[in-house]
Nucleic acid binder design. Structure first.
Length: 423
RNA sequence: GGAGAAAUGGCAGAGUGGUCGAUUGCGGCAGUCUUGAAAACUGUUGAGGGUCACACCUCCGGGGGUUCGAAUCCCUCUUUCUCCGCCA
């Protein structure tokens, strides 16, 4: 959620920047400013009414003490009017505040200067590329065929137990999953991220805190009986640790990492692009989350990018980094870098990590603040990224590391798997 | 699941209808003293709205009610603790 004060001071710049998302924010922002002014004038009116009412109440108290019951009762009549008035004002004020809130929820984050304009993923800007795309032997297979051939993932069994998009990992496949999780967590903790284990279900307030609610409830599984949501990413529980928190400047930087399964309803497209591990209802991910001083958040973002880069380098996977264009960027993000690994057998790039700076957009909803040097509280910046999402990394490994007689395990993972080949 | 008790500022803990945004202690910050630190002493220290700045308003778990007036009384929800039951 954008900050009101920033909108008041910076409206025109915001409108210009939001054009990169292909939206014309002018009418929305004008309306916001208008409602805000109305809200403030109503608030002032109400405050004055309450002030008078408070004053009278005190006088009444004194009069009763002095035994001047008649005078007191006279004043009571006046307070009844004031009460009536403040009640009306309050109702109106609540309505305006709600309208304002609803408007603010509709406005996405303002893109960072470096974000390119664009309408779709084809406009994303490739800023880095590394690793040779392997030349595979004849008869190389896409990962879903490999999974079947080596009996390491059973998609049909998942359909039986739960439904499409809930794969069952078997034997060395399951072990490889566990290895990847442990490897990622180790890399992250070595880099200074504190490992956390968090709930996989969250309440409504948490959904609002990170921006999944109110707009995107369709993407989350909702346990209506208990009014809880299955997390679509560890970002939600981890970032919400800081909901309604006021930090000290000395608390920065805050770096957390957490492994969780992620649940997504994804009412999206079907066909080749969602085959195998490409798109699932349940998948595993190791997330990194940072809370930063505003002055340092873009340094932190670069650090996170370098960190993920380093992991992919160790895994020796061909990958590239994209700076997302305005049209492809998430609602809450100011700047996002996507990592994609090349799926050789599918001959396409697969997104495996997304690293974003949300600036104050989440913090504003979360009420995540810190005391600055002057002792004033201001909003912190939040960031997060996948480090990393398992299924597509797995797909990348299976496809890029396949040989005529089995799948090789990347060297750095062998200590975790305990085997070097899947036959 | 059943019975009882509770929820107050960073923490602990007073406050049971007006003078309470809230006694006090600890912690934090600043100062005195000290070569420096500790101790001691002095001062200061919740959040939000509003204002050029004041004034002023709101907030004592959430929501609703009674009252001229609510941290304090009533209703309700949530959470925590104790006991019982069940259980990985």
């Amino acid at each position: 959620m954008l900050q009101l004060q920033a909108i008041r001071e910076n409206k025109e710049n915001m409108i210009t920047a939001l054009k990169k998302r292909n939206i014309n924010a002018a009418p929305l922002l004008d309306k916001v400013v208008e409602l805000d002014e109305l809200r403030r004038s109503l608030q002032t009116k109400m405050d004055n009414t309450l002030a008078e009412s408070n004053k009278l109440s005190k006088e009444i108290g004194n009069l009763f003490k002095n035994g001047q019951a008649q005078e007191a009762n006279a004043l009571k009549e006046r307070t009844a009017d004031l009460k009536e008035e403040s009640k009306k004002l309050n109702e109106y004020l609540i309505k305006i505040t709600e309208d304002l809130q609803a408007l603010l929820y509709q406005i996405p984050n303002v893109p960072h200067n470096s974000v390119p304009a664009g309408t779709s993923e084809t406009d994303n800007e490739e800023i880095f590329k590394e690793g040779d795309i392997p030349v595979l032997h004849d008869g190389a297979l896409p990962h879903w065929e490999l999974a079947k051939k080596y009996d390491i993932i059973d998609f049909e069994l998942g359909v039986k137990i739960a439904g499409a998009g809930f794969p069952v990992y078997k034997g060395k496949g399951a072990r490889l999953q566990r290895a990847l999780i442990a490897y990622f967590l180790d890399k992250n903790t070595e880099a200074g991220y504190t490992e956390m284990q968090v709930p996989h279900l969250v309440n409504e307030a948490s959904g609002y805190g990170t921006g999944q609610l109110p707009d995107k409830e369709g993407q989350m599984y909702h346990v209506t009986e208990d009014d809880l949501y299955l997390i679509p990413t560890a970002e939600v529980p981890v970032t919400n640790i800081f909901r309604d928190v006021i930090l000290n400047e000395s608390d920065f930087p805050i770096c957390y990492t957490a492994y969780t399964p992620c649940f997504r309803r994804e009412a999206g497209s079907y066909g080749a692009h969602v085959r195998g591990l490409n798109r699932l209802h349940q998948f595993d991910k190791v997330e990194i989350v940072r809370v930063e001083h505003p002055d340092n958040s873009y340094n932190a973002l670069e650090g996170m990018v370098a960190h993920v880069q380093n992991i992919l380098r160790e895994l020796k996977l061909p990958f590239r980094i994209l700076r997302l264009c305005g049209g492809d960027m998430g609602f809450t993000s100011a700047l996002t870098y996507d990592f994609e690994v090349f799926s050789t057998a599918q001959d396409r790039w697969l997104e495996i990590s997304s690293v974003s700076n949300f600036e104050t957009f989440q913090a504003n909803r979360l009420k995540l603040r810190f005391k600055d040097e002057a002792g004033k509280s201001q909003l912190a910046h939040t960031l997060n990224g996948s480090s990393l999402a398992l299924p597509r990394v797995l797909a990348g490994i299976l496809e890029n590391y396949q040989t005529g007689n089995g799948i090789k395990i990347p060297e750095v993972l062998v200590p975790y798997t305990g085997f070097g080949m899947i036959h």
